[in-house]
Design a protein around this nucleic acid. Structure first.
Lengths: 337, 337
DNA sequence: TTGGTCATAGAAAACGTTTTCTCACCACTT
DNA sequence: AAGTGGTGAGAAAACGTTTTCTATGACCAA
């Protein structure tokens, strides 16, 4: 004899409480119902161990109360930090979050976008993969989409981005203030952030009247190391380097280390994305810290706004980061010049 | 006049292809059907832009082809690495993954476990929150559960764990081999991994015939720093430290830095969980690297096995990590003694 | 030819909810 | 006192699929 042959449904609860299934549904969704019945239903829910079937609920009610969060790289602490902010806001509003990781693979990205549509999600927050940057931004989703971190050229979706140009400029100015004049920057070649940061870097250099090296580095292992080695063996060795993201920063450090150069004693180094270990390197690394919590909050807010006003104009929010100044070298060139 | 008043369903496809909905369903799920019809259906699917409704599919077919992956801390690179492995295996088998982050909060964990049941997931892989360790392991889920990383005492679920005792012993032996004799270990007080690693540490010390300090550190900001400060201001200063996880390792480094001590010049340091920045600190940090890919693969395999054999005996898989030996100090005590 | 088995595809039921529809009841208004 | 409006709960439809059931026709053996 089977112990529990069939899972308990709303009808079973109704039977136990001596009411109609409709009434159980009403109690469960908090709509007005006779207090006596409400009590009976609640007791029945507990005694039967009823658990709503979300698939059935979604099918009938035609809203999933779910948003899709598609991230380009779940190993990147920036993305996980943003996801935490988004997730906590979403649950506070009674929305579930489906988290997907594309690993910077456009095929996986397309697969997940399709999947989200099949799930009939309410909305999507997408951190596009790098390669997306090349294709025109025709997402053509049935639900609102908010882009974060990376822009898709020509996209008609709302987005929230870091002010990459300004921040790269800020970083260069910081290095300049510290007395550095021969500055080289390494930027991701294929991401919109890399390109924007590079633009900001070069414009700031023009403003400051200094000449700089701005290198576009392919996203492949060893490329940054090669570039650093080439830079430092060249005729006029830079006295400061700048990296356009956290991964590249580590690569640059590794390269410097293999050349037996120490930061900031022998060369200055700055970059993007703060990590807890950065203060442990030499005198620390100067970086731009992104306002992760605010990015997540803004993206969520924009998505909710868009759901309320589907036909409002496209919005683009640009946020500033925070310069974490560290790594003033012992023999600071600014005082030495 | 509305452009697209209603989303296209399987009936619309059927109408276009001049077949019954059942036949469309059969084509979609790859069951045998007349080639001519199959072609018509496939054409109709494309021309109508049909997208299956997963909620309806799940409701009717009664299987979700979805597994829940509940992680204690999405910011921990160990967990994200494991999740990548799990995710890729799952999609290869046509399973979707719902990723949830409890932030070490037992209430959130309970909430997500309940949610997974409401989603009627096929199975769950759970990295329990730290506090779980205290409560008895009565998950009482309706679906199979595989535990990873942390054990729940008395749990009846399958699990895959690191051989924490052995690895902690290995690490201590390494420090001992390097000539260190006054060794202190800092271990998370409330996680099963912390406790097991501490046990392994103390047993190995007994084996080696040395006395060690094994400290249980509460999981709160500043605690590890306090403990390090106390240790190093005490009468017989340790010449080597060991930390039971990555977070604590950073805290210890920070504390040492504020005491102007350098690793490994002034003191040796070892711990768990490898990170790419570790080789950049001093001469590098010796750590135990966990076999993340294998952990994920094993968990997934165990889950699938359990689905096939629900009544098989409970299994516990214990995996070994890899010692990444780094950080031999310039004035190595082993050669200096 | 006839009867039986098998394969194939359409018809209809079913999945577990929410929502709409309907009806009974009660309180007001006129 | 009779109509009217509002309220609250049960009945039944609906959500978009898959699956079961049924009917038709083909094929084969007797």
């Amino acid at each position: 004899m089977p112990v529990e042959i069939k899972s308990v449904g709303i009808k079973d609860v109704a039977k136990v409480a001596n009411v109609s299934p409709a009434t159980v549904s009403r109690v469960l969704s908090g709509r007005p119902v006779d207090p006596a019945m409400q009590e009976r239903v609640q007791a029945a829910v507990i005694s039967t161990g009823y658990r709503p079937n979300l698939a059935a609920r979604r099918l009938r009610s035609q809203h999933t109360n779910t948003i899709g969060l598609i991230l380009a790289d779940i190993r990147n602490p920036f993305f996980t930090a943003v996801s935490r902010a988004i997730e906590s806001l979403a649950t506070a509003r009674g929305l579930r979050v489906i988290l997907c990781n594309t690993d910077e693979d456009p095929a996986k990205e397309a697969m997940y976008l399709e999947l989200m549509q099949q799930e009939r999600v309410t909305g999507i927050i997408l951190a596009p993969s790098r390669q997306r940057v090349t294709r025109a931004g025709d997402l053509a989703m049935d639900c609102p989409v908010v882009l974060i971190d990376r822009a898709i050229p020509g996209a008609r979706e709302d987005c929230v981005l870091l002010d990459n140009e300004a921040m790269a400029g800020l970083l260069l100015e910081h290095l300049h203030d510290q007395g550095h004049r021969r500055i080289a920057g390494l930027f991701g070649a294929s991401s919109s952030t890399g390109i924007e940061r590079r633009n900001g870097f070069e414009r700031a250099a023009a403003r400051l009247g200094i000449t700089v090296d701005a290198l576009a580095i392919p996203h492949a292992p060893g490329e940054a190391e090669k570039a650093v080695a080439a830079l430092l063996s060249g005729p006029d060795r830079p006295d400061a380097l700048m990296a356009s993201n956290g991964l590249m920063l580590v690569s640059v450090l590794r390269a410097l280390r293999s050349l037996s150069l120490e930061v900031p004693r022998d060369i200055a180094l700055a970059g993007f994305d703060n990590s807890d270990w950065m203060e442990l390197i030499g005198n620390g690394l100067t970086v731009i810290e992104q306002p992760v919590e605010e990015i997540g909050r803004t993206a969520m807010t924009m998505l909710l706004d868009r759901l309320e006003h589907p036909d409002a104009a496209m919005r683009k929010t640009v946020l500033s980061g925070k310069l974490i100044a560290r790594g003033s070298s012992a023999r600071n060139p600014a005082t030495g010049s």
